[in-house]
């Protein structure tokens, strides 16, 4: 099923999305109040993700600060229709947190310059905007239903910032198998969440 085939009933924009976009407009105009509003709304989630990845309160706060300042400076570049403001912000947090832990790990090859998150992180996917509003328990359940090796591969990549080659080395698994575990694991999560959402 392609994205265009997704049921129309799921193609909704929450009031929070509209409010977030209004905040972005004010951010682009340089209104500090708007930044405060956005911070108050997403500080906990942003910090939780940063801390889960870095496991370091100082580094996590630096990451969150950079992310919010990145949004503050680049609010005008936000493209409506490429996912919610929340998804955009949290993708920035995730990307910067991973970048931070990789720099802390000297064996990982790093990009010469900070690159934006992969396009897929900000590509439109309306269904998952809805999924993002699912209860965290449901998401945990979807993760728990994965095989242990699929969950391990996804968590090592998303939360520990390991590359696929590093995961293969750490788990003594062929690289091709690691690729499959990540791909099939994500697909299985999506299918589970789709079923529960409907």
């Amino acid at each position: 099923m392609t994205q265009a085939d997704q049921p129309l009933r799921l193609r909704v924009a929450s009031p929070a999305d509209a409010a977030d976009r209004a905040v972005l407009v004010r951010l682009a105009d340089g209104e500090l109040d708007a930044l405060e509003e956005l911070y108050d709304r997403y500080k906990t989630m942003a910090y939780s993700i940063a801390y889960r990845i870095t496991n370091d309160s100082t580094l996590a706060e630096d990451v969150v600060q950079d992310a919010f300042l990145g949004v503050w400076r680049n609010a005008a570049r936000y493209v409506e229709g490429r996912g919610s403001v929340k998804t955009w912000l949290l993708a920035i947090v995730h990307h910067r947190a991973i970048d931070a832990v990789r720099r802390r790990r000297p064996t990982t090859e790093l990009p010469d310059v900070e690159v934006p998150p992969p396009a897929a992180l900000t590509e439109p996917d309306v269904w998952m905007e809805v999924a993002a509003g699912l209860d965290a328990d449901l998401v945990q359940r979807a993760l728990a239903e994965l095989s242990d090796v699929q969950r391990e591969a996804i968590e090592l990549a998303y939360f520990s910032g390991l590359t696929q080659q590093e995961i293969a080395d750490r788990t003594a698994t062929p690289l091709g198998t690691v690729k499959s575990r990540m791909r099939l694991g994500l697909l299985a999560m999506r299918r589970s969440l789709e079923a529960w959402a409907s």
Binding site: Q3, T44, M45, Y47, S48, I49, Y51, R52, G83, K86, T87, L90, A91, H94, P118, A120, L121, E123, P124, D125, W127, M128, E129, A131, A132, L134, A136, V139, Q140, A142, L143, I154, Y158, F159, R183, L186, L187, M189, R190, L193
Partner: peptide, 17 residues
């Protein structure tokens, strides 16, 4: 896009701090 769309859900799964 299909796989990338799962990431917001992953972000929801972290313990709150």
């Amino acid at each position: 896009a299909e796989l990338g769309g799962v990431l917001p859900a992953l972000a929801e799964s972290v313990p709150v701090v």
